[in-house]
Lab assay of single mutants.
Amino acid sequence: MQRVNMIMAESPGLITICLLGYLLSAECTVFLDHENANKILNRPKRYNSGKLEEFVQGNLERECMEEKCSFEEAREVFENTERTTEFWKQYVDGDQCESNPCLNGGSCKDDINSYECWCPFGFEGKNCELDVTCNIKNGRCEQFCKNSADNKVVCSCTEGYRLAENQKSCEPAVPFPCGRVSVSQTSKLTRAETVFPDVDYVNSTEAETILDNITQSTQSFNDFTRVVGGEDAKPGQFPWQVVLNGKVDAFCGGSIVNEKWIVTAAHCVETGVKITVVAGEHNIEETEHTEQKRNVIRIIPHHNYNAAINKYNHDIALLELDEPLVLNSYVTPICIADKEYTNIFLKFGSGYVSGWGRVFHKGRSALVLQYLRVPLVDRATCLRSTKFTIYNNMFCAGFHEGGRDSCQGDSGGPHVTEVEGTSFLTGIISWGEECAMKGKYGIYTKVSRYVNWIKEKTKLT
Rank of each mutant, 00 (worst) to 15 (best):
E86I: 15
E73V: 06
K457R: 14
E73G: 07
T290M: 07
R140F: 07
F251A: 10
N166E: 03
G125D: 02
G402E: 15
R364K: 12
Q237E: 05
N328C: 03
L318K: 00
F87N: 14
E86M: 15
V202K: 11
F55P: 15
Q57V: 10
G357P: 09
R162C: 04
C141E: 00
K362A: 14
R379F: 11
E171D: 10
K45S: 05
T194I: 11
V353T: 11
N306R: 10
P12H: 08
Q219Y: 06
E73S: 08
R162D: 07
V92P: 10
C157L: 00
F55H: 15
N313T: 11
C141D: 00
N304W: 12
N151Y: 08
C382Q: 02
G125L: 01
Y444F: 14
S329E: 11
N5H: 12
S365A: 15
A266Y: 03
W431P: 07
N310Y: 04
I454Q: 00
Q216A: 12
D249F: 01
N104A: 04
V92S: 14
N258R: 02
L367S: 07
M6V: 10
C102I: 00
D322W: 01
S204I: 07
I17C: 05
D111P: 02
Y352K: 02
N328E: 02
C157A: 01
G246D: 02
P44D: 14
Y22W: 13
V199L: 09
C335A: 00
N5K: 15
S204T: 10
S385T: 13
N245C: 03
D315G: 03
G125Q: 02
R180L: 05
A37C: 05
T342W: 01
T190L: 07
M8L: 10
L14S: 04
S70E: 15
D212Y: 13
V296S: 00
T386K: 09
N258L: 01
Q167N: 07
V451K: 03
S204Q: 04
D200H: 07
E35K: 08
Y330R: 10
Q90F: 11
T417M: 05
F399A: 05
Y330S: 03
L41H: 14
G413P: 02
N80E: 08
N452D: 15
E418Y: 11
S114C: 10
K339P: 15
N393V: 03
R364A: 13
L244D: 01
F87V: 14
C117W: 00
Y330I: 03
D150W: 06
H34Y: 11
L52K: 12
W431S: 11
V248N: 05
S11C: 12
P44Y: 10
S70A: 14
H314K: 02
N113H: 12
Q96T: 06
L23F: 14
E320M: 04
T389K: 07
S114Y: 09
R358P: 10
E66L: 05
R75S: 05
I210V: 11
L372T: 14
K455P: 00
A37H: 06
S184Q: 10
V30C: 04
Q185G: 12
V273K: 02
T386R: 09
K274C: 01
T422M: 04
T389C: 09
V4W: 08
D223L: 11
N203R: 07
I275Q: 03
P239I: 01
C178L: 00
V273R: 02
D111K: 14
I40M: 15
I210D: 13
L189T: 14
F424H: 00
Y47H: 15
E27H: 08
P172L: 04
F251D: 03
I256F: 01
G125H: 02
G412A: 14
I316R: 01
Y312N: 07
V174E: 09
H361Y: 12
L19V: 10
F424W: 14
D212V: 10
G253Y: 05
Y441K: 03
V331C: 05
P172V: 06
E98R: 14
Y444T: 01
S365I: 13
K68M: 10
H361T: 10
S148E: 10
D150S: 11
M394L: 09
G50F: 09
C117R: 02
K109Y: 05
E323K: 08
L318R: 00
E67W: 04
C119L: 00
G351Y: 00
K126Y: 11
E159W: 06
F345Y: 15
H302I: 02
A307I: 09
A366W: 10
C407E: 03
H314E: 04
E259Q: 05
N38K: 13
I316Y: 01
V419I: 15
P177M: 01
S217I: 11
E171K: 10
G50C: 05
K457Y: 13
I297H: 04
G179V: 00
G409T: 07
V296E: 01
I15C: 05
Y91F: 06
Y91K: 15
E142W: 04
M6C: 11
G351W: 01
D322Y: 01
M6A: 15
S255M: 03
Y444N: 02
E340F: 14
Y330E: 04
P197C: 05
V199W: 11
C268D: 00
V277Y: 00
S255H: 01
P414M: 13
S156Y: 10
A337D: 01
C396P: 02
A37R: 04
W431G: 10
R294F: 01
E165V: 11
E208S: 12
N258I: 00
E129N: 08
S107T: 11
K137F: 08
P301L: 12
L52N: 15
T194A: 10
M394H: 14
G230E: 10
A279W: 01
V181R: 10
G357V: 15
Y444L: 06
Q370C: 05
Y161T: 00
I443K: 04
E116T: 15
V374L: 05
N127D: 07
C108D: 01
K260L: 08
Q185Y: 12
N283E: 06
P177I: 01
A436Q: 14
H400I: 14
E401Q: 15
R43A: 15
A308H: 11
A397T: 06
P175G: 07
A37Y: 05
P301K: 11
S406M: 11
L103S: 13
E79G: 15
S448R: 02
R140Q: 15
Q237F: 08
H415K: 01
R384K: 11
K274P: 02
T422F: 03
C268I: 00
C382R: 03
E323G: 03
N213D: 07
Y341P: 04
I284T: 12
R191A: 13
V153Q: 15
K440W: 03
Q90V: 10
I390A: 07
F31T: 15
C97F: 01
Y312V: 08
D95L: 11
H400R: 12
E401R: 14
L367V: 13
K347N: 09
T461Q: 08
V153N: 11
E66D: 06
E259L: 03
T29M: 14
V296M: 02
I443N: 00
A149Q: 10
V228D: 08
